[in-house]
Amino acid sequence: MASLIDNYEQQYAVLTADVTAKIGRIRTQSGNEKRAFVQDVDRQIEEAQELLEQMELEVRGLTGTARDRLRGRVESHRAELKRLTQEFQLAKKPKDESIEISREDSWESNITEDQKKRLLDTSDRIDHTGRTLQNGYRMVLETEEIGSQVLKELHEQRETIQRGRGRLRETDAELGLGSRLLSGMILRNLQQRFILAGVALTLIIVACVVVYYSFKSKS
């Protein structure tokens, strides 16, 4: 269950970090761009509220010191979200209606010293999560680059294999032509041998007939 709460806290940290960045941009935007940022922050604050409610439900199922410790963390998260909501309300007002409020006074009046310490811890976790996300993004880019290089090498290897297959087909065709030529030569050689054997046999028969008639005439 604690790991589930840690997961909620990581989601909350990423969400509130994005909200903080967008609140800063709302102050510099106007018109449709400002309305778009306001709608995004409204939605993200609602998501953050839902995450806090989920964390509170999980904390209720715990007992002992873990429950007290996690409850304190949830309270610090809620105080931080309240502060972000107040900043958001001020940021989305027109500039001529904005009220200058001392951030230090507002901070001191809304939270205790213990909550401020917890908020600082939460801020550290947000920074750590941001660095983790940046490292993850860098790893994704490096993996994408490695994947592109691997695909390039595979493409080159495929072209090499295709060229090898082409040369193999050409060699096979040349071997087939050579085999046919050799078979023709062997066939012609056999034909010549049969012809020579026939001529030799004919000469032998003629010689035998000549000898036979020669002896017969003498007798």
Rank of each mutant, 00 (worst) to 15 (best):
A17T: 12
K22I: 05
H77K: 14
V211C: 08
D18L: 02
L181V: 07
E159I: 03
T160K: 13
K152G: 15
Q29G: 02
K34T: 01
E75A: 12
R83A: 13
T160L: 05
Q191S: 09
F88C: 02
L119V: 06
S148C: 03
S102E: 10
R69G: 00
G64T: 06
A200D: 02
R138I: 10
K34N: 03
L187F: 04
E145G: 06
E153K: 15
A207R: 12
V206H: 11
A13N: 07
S109R: 15
L119I: 14
N32W: 06
G166R: 10
A21F: 05
Y8K: 11
L182K: 10
R35S: 12
K117M: 03
Q49G: 12
I101L: 15
I205A: 14
E75C: 01
S219C: 00
E174Y: 00
V150G: 05
A66T: 02
G130W: 09
A36G: 01
Q89A: 06
R131N: 11
V199Q: 04
D96H: 05
R71N: 04
V199M: 09
E113A: 05
D114H: 08
I126P: 00
R193S: 03
L168Y: 10
G31N: 01
A197E: 08
V14W: 02
S102L: 11
A173V: 01
E156Q: 09
R188D: 03
Q162Y: 03
S217P: 01
V209I: 15
Q162H: 02
L196H: 09
I45G: 14
D105P: 01
V210K: 15
S183F: 08
L133I: 13
I5G: 04
K152H: 11
A173L: 05
S98I: 14
H77P: 00
R35E: 15
Q134L: 13
L181T: 11
R193T: 04
A200W: 03
R169S: 11
T28V: 07
Y8N: 10
N135I: 07
G184Y: 01
I5C: 05
R158T: 06
H77E: 05
E170D: 14
L141H: 09
Q192W: 06
Q44G: 03
V41Y: 04
V74R: 02
I205W: 10
T143F: 03
L15E: 03
N110L: 07
A207C: 09
L119E: 13
L62V: 04
Q29W: 00
N7L: 06
T129S: 12
V41F: 05
I146K: 15
G24L: 12
I99S: 12
D96T: 10
K117P: 00
I195Q: 13
L182N: 08
L154K: 14
H128Y: 06
D114V: 04
Y212T: 15
S123N: 01
Q10I: 09
L168V: 10
V140N: 01
V210I: 15
E159S: 11
I186G: 02
R67P: 00
L175T: 02
D105V: 14
F88Y: 13
K116D: 15
V74I: 01
R83L: 11
K116S: 15
Q89L: 07
R180E: 13
Q192A: 08
R118C: 07
G178S: 10
V14D: 06
Q10S: 11
K82F: 08
G184S: 04
E97A: 13
